[in-house]
Structures are given as C-alpha cells and as structure tokens.
C-alpha cells in the first residue's frame, strides 16, 4: 500500500528546501527539514527505504552517514508523520 497524504493535509515547499505541512482538520502545521521533504516526496512516489537512504546519503557528499542509520531515520520520520495524522498507508 502506497503512502499518501490525508485529504485535509497540504504540503508546501519552503525556500530553504524544506517543507510545511498544514492539517486543515486539526489546525496544526508542521515543518520538514530538506532531507525530511526529500524523504516524504520519494515515499509518496512509492520509493522504497533503501532508495531513499541512498538519495539522502548521496546528498551528504562527504561520506557521512550509513545506509542502516538512514533507513532507521526514514522509518522514524514516516512513523512520526503517521502518528501526527498527516499520512495514511505505507
């Protein structure tokens, strides 16, 4: 099942490369840092965790981070998005 934003949730990209999520149902709004936005967009497009992890690590450009840690971080972010009621599926 593909991850998707709830119908009442809007996503806007910020100038710093991050994103803002607005939940019109609860009135809450949230901020994603640039790697968070990359993770969400790729996840919404159906990319798997390994692909997203490689993308995040490639963006680091200095060899910092490792795939296992990146995958764990991706899972943590998706869980936070689900707990906040911003996404369904996945």
């Amino acid at each position: 099942m593909t991850l998707r934003l709830r119908a009442e949730v809007s996503l806007a990209e910020a100038e710093d490369g991050g994103g803002v999520l607005l939940d019109e149902r609860s009135g809450e709004y949230w901020q994603l840092n640039p790697s968070g936005l990359t993770t969400l967009k790729l996840r919404l497009a159906g990319a798997d965790e390994a692909t997203i992890a490689e993308t995040l690590l490639a963006g680091a450009q200095d060899g910092t981070g490792d795939v296992a840690q990146a995958v764990a971080d991706i899972r943590e972010l998706v869980a936070q998005l689900a707990d906040a009621g911003l996404v369904v599926g996945g």
Partner: peptide, 13 residues
Amino acid sequence: YSKPTLLKLGSFE
C-alpha cells in the same frame, strides 16, 4: 548527512 526531521510549528484556529 542530515537526519530527516518533522517539527510541529503550531496550530491555528
């Protein structure tokens, strides 16, 4: 490497 993060900014009426 930058860990992906989600931060609640607030809420509105």
